[in-house]
Amino acid sequence: MSGIPAAIEVDFAYGRRLEWWTLAWMSTIIAVMYFTMGASKAMQSALIEDFLSLVPAMTFLVAGHFEPKKPTSRFPFGFARVNSLAFLVAAVALTLVGLFVAWEAASALLAQEHPTVPPIEIFGQRVWLGWLMIAALVYSIVPPVILGHRKLPVARRLRDKVLHTDALMQKADWQTGLTGIVGIVGIGMGYWWADSAAGLLIALSILKDGISNIRTASAELLDGAPREMDSAAISHEAETVIAKAQECWPGSTVRLRESGRYMIAVVEGVEPPAQIPPHGELTGKVPDWRLARLTFEPPQSDEA
């Protein structure tokens, strides 16, 4: 189980390109936000949120660097599980973004902060800074919407939960950008609470995604049964493989766990067969590469 299966090589390379694009675009967004934020709390938290949102993209690239490497004497099972570790890091980052936005919004609401957005002079013209902030926020929305939409199908094909979490992070990005605009317009209309109230709602949805991802990532590291990509439910593909294996070896116990994007199966209570069933018989519609290892544990003799 080393290297990337040929079936997903192209998608894997595309995923990595998407993540490099993410880092590049998000850096330009961070720069634009930095120059327009002024003293606005909402813009400051949007900036910190953008910084944190780089974490899943970076962990994907780091994990993608190690995953294809061959096993070594120090890591005899290879590096497939780097992806599981990266998934946990990305899930924690997403949750932190949710917590951060929630805390900022709630404390501003409780303190009844009335955000001040003054006029400024730009190229000899007096402009309300709110308009510049809205322009910066509109710019900050466009790349995440496009990148997130491109990442989702690739993440599904790669069974890559890090990339999936990163697509969720992009969703968090454009949603906080949009709430930022609603908030600034709200401030402009004289509703001081608009910004924080909208931020709090979005934070709750980010938190929900983050916590569900932490649960799935923890399950993966605890050798839990493979989970669905977008929920904590046991993966449909895992259930298919278990059912097929039990058809092939009636009376056996089949246990499945997840190692990065791969599934590892242990069939207990049967002698190792002389021949492994042909491709497709065990996996059905599940891609073959997904079942990376199949081991057998013979029945324990009574004397043992």
Partner: peptide, 23 residues
Amino acid sequence: CSSIIVAALGAALLAGCGMPRDP
């Protein structure tokens, strides 16, 4: 997503007249 964005921008432009106001 894009329809939400268009709606938000439309609302921003509509609300733009007379902005900013005082809470």
